[in-house]
Design a protein around this nucleic acid. Structure first.
Lengths: 221, 221
DNA sequence: TAGCTTTTTACGGATAACCGTATAAATTGA
DNA sequence: TCAATTTATACGGTTATCCGTAAAAAGCTA
């Protein structure tokens, strides 16, 4: 069962609604914070008091303001919390819509569900909560089918590095030098050209502009 | 006084919270919709029934889904509503943070207040509502001072059309033909080159790849 | 180590983009 | 209406990318 829930969400309106949804489920013990650092402190405290949270519901992006934060975003928070309490359930509640990022949350952050802020997000949150109650992870139906199709092609670190340079306005012919300076191999212009070509082929992409649009859209860079 | 309130907001969680806030103010007559078209229909109906709304609270961006919409965003909705009921109060509740756009809402759409979805948005919404109750417009303190010191680059429809084509993999030299087919002018390759160059200059952008990354990142295409 | 495969790089011709200038068309203002 | 101004297009030289081929380097296997 899920008795204790912690909500990390900076938007007050959303925070209120999530609290309400948890309330509707009869969760008695609900805490919430507007900052990641505060949420992390609560998790630490709950462990030391032998009364740990069962579930963390967190946003990904948090606005910055005058309060300097160690944990600046949901990713940071999830990583930190997982370290001190590996078994806690984590639901991510965010408007992020890039498949690569959502996939990474499941694969690398081991989250138990992703709910996108959208038209039926309150209902989705309920579905996710119900999935957790019966010990399952939650996957939105769109992603059940689509989330692995991006996996056919693997973007290497090298790919991402080069694509980022292109997105930053570096010309292809400048990139070999940059790669050498960073001791990254291969660094030849030909290798860059060939690799970019291969990526384009894999996704039926024609121009390099289209490729940049694609990797931006999917959160690869 | 404000008796009748209409909420147009596609995110269910946010919508629920706004309803709750209105409730806390003792507003008895609250309606809400998840689509702009539905909201507009309600306004029309309320006028024909001689029971018009006092206040519209609307988001700006609405997700698209299977339901085809005439009014696609808050801007469309505001414009349409203002035409049939010029005196209605309008509060915009959005995560938009570009000063140029917010300024334009006050200047060109004649809104009565802008509340940014952020850490204290529920409290801000209350403040805005209270301002309306005493017949004033609401300005967030940040914008009171900053809102007029803006210079902005305006992306025209033509710009967006061309940038989209580039992001879709069209080569520059193909675009003149496409523009002609759509009866869009100018359509010359030179005009395209020149305009793209001008945009790049304005933003200190070097390559077209970087430009595509930029417009993707900022949701311009 | 020799012989083979794979990866990386070098090179060069073809094509597209870039960029300045010149001409043509459209718009504006008396 | 006509001249002035702005805007759009045409043209050409330069540069960067694209793309195929070939050579060189690195990795692998026996």
């Amino acid at each position: 069962m899920i008795h204790r829930v912690l909500i990390a969400e900076d938007h007050e309106t959303v925070n209120i609604s999530v609290q309400k949804t948890m309330n509707d489920f009869g969760v008695s013990d609900i805490n919430y914070n507007y900052y990641c650092d505060d949420a992390f402190l609560r998790v630490k405290k709950s462990i030391s008091e032998n009364n740990p949270y069962d579930l963390l519901i967190t946003d990904l992006s948090f606005d910055t303001d005058h309060r300097v934060q160690t944990l600046k975003c949901g990713f940071d928070l999830i990583k930190a919390v997982r370290e001190i309490q590996p078994t806690i359930k984590i639901l991510v509640f965010s408007s992020e819509n890039k498949p690569a990022i959502i996939k990474s949350l499941y694969d690398n952050y081991n989250i138990d569900g992703y709910i996108r802020k959208a038209r039926n997000d309150a209902k989705e949150l309920k579905s996710a909560f119900e999935a957790l109650l019966v010990g399952k992870k939650y996957f939105h139906h769109d992603y059940k089918t689509n989330i692995n199709s991006l996996n056919i092609f693997e973007f290497s670190e090298w790919d991402v590095f080069v694509l980022k340079l292109l997105a930053q306005g570096k010309m292809q012919k400048e990139i070999p030098e940059i790669l050498e300076q960073n001791n990254i191999k291969p660094s030849g212009l030909s290798s860059i050209e060939k690799r970019i070509n291969k990526i384009k082929e894999s996704f039926d992409i024609i121009t390099t502009e289209q490729l940049i649009a694609f990797v931006k859209e999917n959160g690869i860079v």
